[in-house]
Design a protein around this nucleic acid. Structure first.
Lengths: 342, 342
DNA sequence: CTTCACCGAGAAATCGCTTTCTCCATCACC
DNA sequence: GGTGATGGAGAAAGCGATTTCTCGGTGAAG
């Protein structure tokens, strides 16, 4: 590991400088006052020998790694990328590094991967949108300290940082209703996805608040391909009177948009389309995609803040949910002047 | 670290099972034959105590971590994400984990970050497209074993995995020329970027092969914003006769595409646009973006293969360059029926 | 029946560092 | 000038595993 200097150890330095290893350690860590002469000699020896201390040995003594792990279902998802980036940068400021563990969407392996990752680190960040809740609860206890992302876990002592999907969907529906839409459709995410469940709650709440509105559900997915695949179904509901579609996320929305264009559906002229997450590409889509913006890197930074507290023996901080912000762009507009009532 | 079970050590297990720590270790690692009765007892004790061995202690003994680090300038870049993903999955198959170090494009910190990351790991993957070559060469020697991504470093003993940008650009130009274009433009990447330099070489070689072709250079960048910003300049050269544009990468191309649409330029009717990298979103752009596909995750896997060899004390394997594959989509087409000669 | 090779299990050394403990010397103060 | 407080440096004890070394016991061979 730190062995790039071919195994020169603290004892080598000590010998070379004619002092004890303890003194070298003191010089290294500045923990106690040391004779300036010794400091000088030790530093000289360190330079000469090209010594650099073994972090592993240090870790063994201190019982910590200054490393945390983040478990994600799919590194190619822009949301997780953003969180990883924010986490990684924030952690770096405190001298911590982040290890990534991509579970490649294999839900069954998630637990084992998380436990293994935890072994190597001081703490864990868990993004496991598909893991069954009971399993997740057990896991969380095993791997503490841990911060959970985007999973509500009521009554469990674990810090959670997430997105208020319920509110986000409500706000998005409000936006569309405000534009005059009364018949909407929601292209669902993966069935087992917790954040999809949240979004569905948002749909329900929105329906409760807008009695005159109807929202169809169309089984979708989480990737652009899913968006493409669902396009015919969307066209169908559109024919039946739906004037606006909310996709599970931007990836789906972008796929959908591409396919709709090919199917000759004018967005937003005939049909409004909105996504969720506001991925970087959303604003470069054609038309520029209306989306609910989620502060990805900020979430990552917040996760780190929670984790750091935990590692330092601090209290389990409160759950924090970020409220997505509407980014109204070109893909949503008032419905064509047909009967606006359903 | 593995301390989730509150510091139960191998000695605790040994005591509980009434055997020596050495035996517990043997049972754990299956290195030698052990009395079945002891095995049973030890396993029982392990289960009872919820013991799990400290990876750090192991690392200290073995002198390795089973962890490698990847240094990237920007985790939000789809290319690096793909490589990270491929690397991470391939490494996981061999029981290795990947630590990420995002340098946030701060070229000056790259060296320090790399060295620090290397301390924690058995090996390094270096993506440093902007680092001055001399500096990179020095660094590479310090942090070995290391694999370098996307940087040609002639005569240096280091495995390199990369993309043949030169060839890629040539092929892309061929594609455009084949469509009938004679006057092209290349929107450059960051000035200090090594892969931009490669692309420029590709441009030169292409020019040499097509004497009748002219290629303007337009200073650009590497992000969608840069693509948007450069749009007016592109329009200008278009007015002057350019019929096809190659962007440094897809992100730039996508930004450009969005802006061109707003400027009323028909792609590919009036102007063909091509990107590079074939990011996931390329095929969902409007029009679907022609690009040079780069096997991102495959590169990551290949990087791991090289790294593993190196870690195992194997030879420095040869440089491997992936030749990008043309993904001809809708954004490129034959030029409008004006004079096809420049 | 004795001797030797072999095998399995515990004791102990080791990995490279930090930290406590111990000791010696210096200083201040009475 | 003697004594206690102080401080700085080395010795040694961990941290938690692995691995070598050592030794006692068993089985086979002479």
């Amino acid at each position: 590991m730190g062995d790039r200097s071919r195994g020169v150890t603290i004892s080598d330095v000590a010998a070379h400088a004619g002092v004890s290893p303890a003194s070298v350690s003191r010089v290294l860590n500045g923990r106690a006052s040391v004779d300036p002469e010794i400091v000088r000699k030790v530093q000289a020896s360190i330079a000469t020998l090209g010594y650099s201390p073994s972090l592993v040995a240090r870790s063994l003594v201190h019982g910590r790694n200054t490393t945390v792990a983040m478990v994600v279902p799919d590194l190619e998802n822009p949301l997780f990328q953003g969180i990883l980036k924010g986490l990684s940068l924030a952690a770096a400021d405190d001298g911590y590094r982040v290890l990534v563990a991509d579970t490649a969407e294999r839900v069954d392996d998630e637990e084992a991967i998380a436990v293994e990752a935890r072994q190597r680190c001081d703490a864990l960040v868990l993004c496991a949108p598909r893991m069954p809740e009971a399993k997740l609860r057990r896991l969380v206890e095993r791997v503490a300290p841990v911060v959970v992302v985007n999973r509500p876990l009521p009554d469990l002592d674990v810090p959670i940082v997430g997105v208020d999907y319920v509110r986000g969907i409500r706000d998005l529906v409000d936006h569309l209703v405000g534009l005059g839409h009364r018949r909407l459709a929601y292209v669902t995410g993966p069935e087992t996805s917790a954040s999809n469940a949240e979004r569905l709650r948002g749909v329900d709440e929105a329906l409760a608040m807008h009695p005159s509105v109807r929202i169809e559900r169309i089984p979708g997915g989480s990737r652009p391909e899913d968006g493409e695949a669902v396009a015919p179904a969307v066209v169908e509901v559109h024919r039946a009177g739906v004037t606006a579609v909310i996709a599970f996320n931007d990836l789906v929305a972008l796929g959908l948009l591409a396919r709709l264009r090919e199917l000759g559906v004018d967005v937003p002229g005939e049909l409004s389309v909105a996504g969720f997450d506001d991925v970087p590409m959303a604003r470069y889509a054609t038309p520029r995609l209306t989306s609910m913006s989620v502060p990805r890197t900020e979430i990552g930074a917040q996760v780190w803040a929670r984790l750091r507290t935990l590692i330092g023996g601090g209290p389990i901080e409160h759950t924090v949910l970020y409220r997505p912000r509407l980014e109204a762009r070109e893909s949503t507009a008032a419905p064509a002047a047909v009967g606006a009532r359903a």
